[in-house]
Write a protein that binds this DNA or RNA. Structure first.
Lengths: 129, 129
DNA sequence: CTGAATCCTCTGAGATACTG
DNA sequence: CAGTATCTCAGAGGATTCAG
């Protein structure tokens, strides 16, 4: 439990938002996860991340590169070749996100149950009311 | 740092997405952070979370309630009164998110530097190219 | 006080076609 | 192969208004 008590005023939530804006979008997490396996090329990423479009892969990679989370290496060869990899900071983020994944796994069933319960209550209220 | 090594294939990223869909939206994190201080009423939350609209506060609270992260307690009095609080699961999430905030604080400067550097390079490329 | 309903705008993101 | 450019659409979210 390295987590500080986090009696967060808005300020703390604000800092976290910056991070969530980065990894909370639709694709960043998948890209980071994929690069956790090691250096990959554009087409490899596109193939391995199911459903991502060229455009979104490009946009996502640009964002991550800008924030110093991935590196982009171009080889001036024909046909072109570009390698992507996590930076050191990117790897620490991978670790941090790991705790979130852990939490998700630990509470998936509980969340599903809560949703089912809530939906059932809502449906009943609808029918009765 | 209990974080497992997280050599995540897509499956792991997928599970985390569910969580990020919940806390990664524009307001959930602020609400959770505020409720970390203890039970609050609708109007208190609206006042304390700068810039949130009634609508988004309602929508956000409903989502969090549905997922079993906050509880909603109505008092049938006049004028109406509704209290919101974190559930036990909500408190564990607060803890988990704490590690993310910690990461954010630890790397804010590095990220800012990376952005500045990237933007500078981009501007230069633009000018020269 | 708490919230539902309506309207409106702006951005995220997919599909497609083109370039070095 | 690795992008960029353009079009388009759906959904998020704000402002405002109405109701219990």
């Amino acid at each position: 439990m390295g987590a500080p008590s986090f009696h967060a005023p808005n300020a703390d939530a604000c800092r976290a938002r910056g991070i969530l804006d980065r990894i909370g979008d639709k694709w960043s997490l998948f890209v980071i996860a994929q690069l956790g396996d090691g250096t990959k090329r554009f087409t490899e990423l596109k193939r391995d991340i199911d459903g991502i479009s060229q455009r979104m892969l490009t946009v996502t990679l640009r964002g991550l590169e800008r924030d110093g989370i991935v590196t982009r290496t171009m080889y001036p060869v024909m046909p072109p070749r570009v390698d992507y990899a996590l930076t050191d900071m990117g790897r620490t983020l991978l670790d941090t996100v790991g705790t979130l994944v852990w939490w998700a796994e630990a509470h998936l069933a509980e969340i599903d149950a809560a949703r089912a319960s809530y939906d059932a209550r809502a449906a009943q209220t609808d029918a009765v009311g």
